[in-house]
Nucleic acid binder design. Structure first.
Lengths: 144, 144
DNA sequence: TATTGTTATACTCTATAACTATA
DNA sequence: TATAGTTATAGAGTATAACAATA
């Protein structure tokens, strides 16, 4: 079905540049140096999807296991997550967010969303509708 | 106008996570090791917006001058750009894309777009419409 | 043997601070 | 002095390869 390609090429090209530049802006925005964006993303996953093993978090976040090892080490060092060893499989441990982690996540999320929300204020209702509709599609694009 | 914040907070939160994860996927996709994504982005700007100074490229790409210095050095080393010194201001030089740079850009763009386009094939016409509408808004979000 | 996770290493991407050359 | 650009340095983010511990 190579007939499909030309139909999508133009959208793909535009979307690729838009996404990279928008993400660059988001990443550059440093609200608080306490946690990096990758740490926050992992912490949000642990908070939302309950206690998980390191491998499960890596799979959800779509990073390789060694990358997640590094992120988890820094989260643990800061006291935002806690590991519980598994008697039934001693290779794994189960990772949960701590109360301090929850506080940090709430505060960072609030601050970062506020920054972005302040930018969104400059956009029309029509623009916001378009962004809102695209979110769910981008989610699938990012996690398929 | 703090009344606007609550209206946008939810969209901001969802959009932030979606953008970061979609961009992570795009960045991880290595079609060809000849050029990195940042190099391609700068090269595309030079190609599209004609000969420019280093500072102008940095401003368009929204990176700091030292970051652009590094990107330009690698592009020049590969023979994809060319500098012409300016007699009227010898601090600057004007940077243009070379024929080899044009070829590289076309080939890399084709390969990367093909990868993304192949992913887009799995999406419905409705999804593609939503993405297409969001592109222009994301552009403004990324470059304001 | 297969699986889970870690250590070692390396590369990309980007920034700030300090500097050089020119205006 | 002010501006354009570069060098030096550092840290975030991520990967692959090789390894250890456990199943």
């Amino acid at each position: 079905m190579s007939q499909t390609l030309p139909d999508h090429a133009q959208l793909a090209s535009a979307l690729r540049l838009s996404l990279l530049r928008a993400a660059r802006r988001l990443r550059a925005q440093r609200v608080n140096t306490a946690a990096t964006l990758s740490q926050l993303s992992a912490l949000a996953t642990i908070c939302k999807s309950g206690p998980l093993s390191a491998g499960e978090i890596a799979a959800i976040e779509r990073v390789q296991p060694p990358s997640m090892t590094k992120i988890l080490a820094s989260l643990e060092h800061s006291g935002w997550i806690e590991r519980t060893s598994q008697p039934e499989d001693r290779r794994q441990s189960i990772i949960a967010i701590t109360p301090a982690g929850r506080d940090l996540l709430a505060e960072e999320t609030r601050a970062r969303d506020e920054w972005l929300a302040n930018r969104l204020v400059e956009f029309s209702a029509e623009d916001l509708r378009k962004l809102g509709e695209a979110v769910e599609v981008l989610d699938r694009l990012g996690s398929e």
